[in-house]
């Protein structure tokens, strides 16, 4: 032991020194260090908690903001849809109005044109009669007087002889509406006669309308539904042409 330098006195001195150091360090270092560690841990956990709270607040604010944004967006979409609807409605109204106006104008123009045509045809009639009489007078050498001539021409154009519609005799007609086509515009008296004759055949409630078609040359064509009674000069000429062939 002595060779190793071990000595009870030295050993005790070293132990004493260590224990003194232990007490001193415990008082001056470990106590404050543990306090400091605890304080720091508390501080860290507190700041973590603060950070968590701030995060929560931020998240909540963000959610609010996004909600407000969504609402604004929905409102905007609604306003846009409304405006679009209104505009479309307006546009459709305008278009419809324009179309109606155009149609009105068109029908007015048609009417005017038709009445002009009617007028022209009516003016034409005496001339045709005069030409026809003149021509007939050449042929027949004045065998016919003037009144007789006029009656014949009227008869030719209206198909009405001595107050009767010749082509309707012996025809069985049925239907609700009849269309009468003539080569020139008929006089009102003739129209009345034809109407009466047709209503005799079809019944009082039958509707009768009149058309003018110069292509049939003379006489009248009466159409009731599918049935057609053709007493036109053109038809007669065609029949003549066929029989001469």
């Amino acid at each position: 032991m002595a060779a190793l330098g071990l000595n009870l006195g030295y050993l005790l001195v070293q132990m004493f020194s260590f224990l003194v150091m232990f007490v001193v360090l415990r008082a001056w270092v470990y106590g404050p260090v543990l306090e400091l560690l605890a304080a720091r841990r508390e501080k860290i956990s507190k700041s973590l908690e603060d950070a968590r709270k701030a995060e929560e607040l931020r998240e909540r604010t963000e959610a609010d903001a996004s909600k407000i944004l969504a609402e604004a967006r929905a409102e905007r979409a609604k306003i846009v849809a409304d405006a679009t609807y209104q505009a479309e409605k307006r546009a459709a109204d305008i278009i419809r109005g324009a179309e109606k106006e155009r149609e009105d104008l068109l029908t007015a123009a048609k009417h005017e044109a038709e009445s002009k045509v009617q007028g022209a045809l009516e003016e034409l009639r005496p001339q045709i009669a005069a030409i026809a009489i003149a021509a007939a007078g050449r042929i027949v050498q004045g065998a016919l007087d003037d009144a007789r001539q006029h009656a014949l021409i009227d008869q030719f154009f209206s198909g009405v002889r001595e107050g009767k519609v010749t082509i309707l005799e012996g025809e069985a007609l049925s239907g609700a509406a009849a269309v009468v086509t003539s080569a020139i515009t008929l006089k009102d008296a003739e129209k009345e006669k034809i109407k009466q004759a047709l209503s005799d055949k079809l019944g009082g409630s039958a509707k009768v309308s009149f058309r003018v078609d110069p292509a049939i040359l003379g006489g009248i064509v009466i159409r009731v539904g599918d049935h057609e009674v053709n007493g036109s000069a053109r038809q007669t000429l065609q029949q003549l042409q066929e029989s001469l062939r």
């Binding site: 001195v13 020194s17 001193v24 270092v29 260090v33 400091l36 304080a39 501080k43």
Partner: peptide, 30 residues
């Protein structure tokens, strides 16, 4: 033993300085 005393002295100075600065740090909110 002289080395022991020297080491003890160094430790004492260190501990004393530490205790002072640690108290100051604690007072200033860790």
């Amino acid at each position: 033993m002289a080395a022991m005393l020297l080491a003890d002295l160094i430790l004492l100075v260190l501990a004393f300085a530490f205790s002072r600065s640690a108290r100051a740090a604690l007072a200033a909110g860790a």
